[in-house]
Design a binder for these strands. Structure first.
Length: 410
RNA sequence: GGGGGGAUUCCCGAGUGGCCAAAGGGAGCAGACUGUAAAUCUGUUGCGGAACGCUUCGGUAGUUCGAAUCUACCUCCCCCCA
C-alpha cells in the first residue's frame, strides 16, 4: 500500500483498537530498525487447528496483521497442531477432542481459504508447530523447561486461581505456555498478537527468547469482539457471530441487530473508518444529532463492503429497508415444491405445510407457530392450526419475521 | 489405596413413590411495542391430525397397582484424605 509512512504514522495505525502493546517502545524500535535495514518484521499469530469458520471477531486480529503487512512486514500463521494435544488451559476447562492429522490439515486449508480475504497471501506463511515441537526429545523438554521457574508459571491468573480453589492442574498443562513460548523461539518472531487471555503465554515467549539469546518479541493484545447479543464474546458456538464468508444480506441483517451501544466498538475494530470520524459519530449519537439507525446502517455497510463490495453493501441496505422497514417481500425467496399428492382438493393441512417446507421442525412446533399468529400466506394470517387451507401456485408463505417460502405446486 | 458427592428436558438447576412432560432462571422462538434493534410486556419451548395419547430424567435389570424419585449392577464426572 503506502510504503513510506513515518514510524509515528505506523504506530498510530497499529495502536488503533489494541488493548496493550508490551512494551510499546520496543515495537517502535523494531519498526525503526526494520525501516532502516529493509528487513521485514515477523509477526506471529497462533491458531487452534479447530474452528474453521472465521468470523468478524477473529478478523479483528487478522486485520491488525494486515495493517502490518501493508507496512511491509510478514505474517506467520502458526497452526498449533502439536499443542492442541495438550489443550490450552486458558479460560475454558473443557477438554478438546483430539484431531487426526488429516482433520487438522483439512481445517488448515479451510483457514487458508478464508484468511486470504483479509491477509495478503504473498506475505503470509502457514506453519505447524508439530514441525519442531514434535522433534524435541525428553531431554530437550527438560532443558527448555529448566528456563522457566514454577513461580513464574504459577503467577498466571488461571493457575493461581485453580491452585487456591483446590482445582486440579495437570502437569502437562504447565508445559503449555512453555510450548507456545518455544514456538516464538523457533520462529524468531518479532511481534506476537493475541487476546488478553494469551497474555501470559505470549509474555513467556519473551522470556524464553531472551534466554535463548534472541531479541524478545513484542506482545500485542487485541480485544475480544463482543457478539451480536452484546453480552458474550463473538463465537460460532454461541451463534452470535457474523462469518466473513456470509452473503451481504445476511451480514447486513445481523449487524443491524446489534445493540446500539456496541456501535463505537464495532466501528473501531471492524471498519476502516478513521478514528476522528468515529469520535464525531459517538458525539453525534450522544447529543441526539445523529439517528442511531442511520449510523448502524453505515456501520453495516462499512463492514459488508470490506468482505464484498460497496455496491453489494448498498444493495444489502436497500434489501434490508425493503423487507424490514417497508414490510415488503424479499427479492430472493426460496421456492418449495409442493407435490399435489400431499394435498386434497387444493387444500393442505396447515401444520403439514409448515413441516413440509421446513419452516417448522415438527407438527407440534407448527401448531404453536400458527396459534401464536406467526404464519401467513400472501399476507393473510392463518390462525386455525387444525384447518385445511387452500393454497395456490406462487403464493408466499411467511413464518415469523424471517422465514419466507414461495409455494410451487406441481 | 480409603471416604464422600453427583449425572434431570438447549444450558443452569428444583424435584426423593402417584398431584411430573417435570418448578425457577438463562437462552431460543412467536406476538405487541419500536428504529430493524435493545429494553419492556405477553405467550411459548418433547412428540403425535392432539381437550386424548405416547416417549423422556446417564445405562441395564428389578421392586411396586404406580418410579425422575426405591434396589442391584454398570458407565462417566467431581471432591476430600493418603
Amino acid at each position: 500500500m503506502t510504503p513510506q509512512l513515518t514510524v509515528d504514522e505506523q504506530m498510530e495505525i497499529l495502536r488503533r483498537g489494541t488493548l496493550e502493546i508490551v512494551p510499546e517502545d520496543e515495537l517502535r524500535e523494531k519498526l525503526v530498525k526494520s525501516q532502516k535495514t529493509g528487513v521485514p518484521l515477523r509477526l506471529k499469530l497462533g491458531l487452534d487447528p479447530t474452528a474453521p469458520d472465521i468470523h468478524i471477531g477473529h478478523a479483528v486480529v487478522l486485520r491488525k496483521l494486515r495493517q502490518f503487512q501493508d507496512i511491509g512486514h510478514e505474517v506467520v500463521i502458526l497452526i498449533g497442531d502439536f499443542t492442541a494435544r495438550i489443550g490450552d488451559p486458558s479460560g475454558r476447562s473443557v477438554t478438546r477432542p483430539l484431531l487426526s492429522s488429516e482433520e487438522i490439515e483439512a481445517n488448515a486449508r479451510t483457514y487458508a481459504d478464508q484468511y486470504c480475504r483479509i491477509l495478503d497471501a504473498d506475505k503470509t506463511k502457514v506453519l505447524f508447530n508439530s514441525e519442531w515441537l514434535g522433534k524435541l526429545d525428553f531431554a530437550d523438554v527438560i532443558r527448555v523447561s529448566a528456563k522457566v521457574t514454577v513461580a513464574r508459571v504459577l503467577e498466571r491468573d488461571d493457575f493461581a486461581n485453580r491452585l487456591s480453589d483446590g482445582r486440579p492442574i495437570g502437569l502437562h498443562e504447565i508445559l503449555y505456555p512453555v510450548c507456545q513460548a518455544y514456538d516464538s523461539v523457533a520462529l524468531k518472531s518479532d511481534v506476537e498478537l493475541g487476546g488478553m487471555d494469551q497474555k501470559f503465554n505470549i509474555l513467556m515467549g519473551r522470556d524464553l527468547q531472551r534466554e535463548s539469546g534472541q531479541e524478545p518479541q513484542v506482545a500485542m493484545f487485541m480485544p475480544i469482539l463482543v457478539g451480536l447479543d452484546g453480552v458474550q464474546k463473538m463465537s460460532k458456538s454461541l451463534g452470535n457471530y457474523v462469518g466473513i464468508t456470509e452473503a451481504p444480506n445476511e451480514m447486513f441483517g445481523k449487524l443491524m441487530s446489534i445493540p446500539d451501544d456496541l456501535m463505537p466498538q464495532y466501528f473501531e475494530l471492524c471498519t476502516d473508518v478513521p478514528m476522528n470520524e468515529i469520535e464525531d459519530i459517538v458525539y453525534g449519537l450522544s447529543n441526539g444529532k445523529l439517528h442511531p439507525m442511520n449510523i448502524k446502517k453505515r456501520l453495516a455497510r462499512e463492514i459488508v463492503a470490506i468482505y464484498h463490495s460497496e455496491e453489494s453493501a448498498m444493495e444489502a441496505q436497500l434489501e434490508f429497508e425493503k423487507v424490514f422497514s417497508s414490510g415488503e417481500l424479499p427479492t430472493d425467496i426460496p421456492v418449495c415444491n409442493i407435490p399435489t399428492d400431499i394435498m386434497k382438493d387444493g387444500k393442505i393441512w396447515a401444520p403439514k405445510l409448515l413441516t413440509f417446507t421446513g419452516t417448522a421442525s415438527s407438527n407440534s412446533d407448527a401448531r404453536r407457530l400458527i396459534e401464536q399468529g406467526a404464519v401467513s400466506i400472501d399476507g393473510e394470517r392463518i390462525s386455525d392450526a387444525g384447518s385445511d387451507i387452500t393454497i395456490a401456485d406462487g403464493q408466499v408463505l411467511r413464518v415469523g419475521k424471517l422465514k419466507f417460502v414461495k409455494l410451487q405446486i406441481n
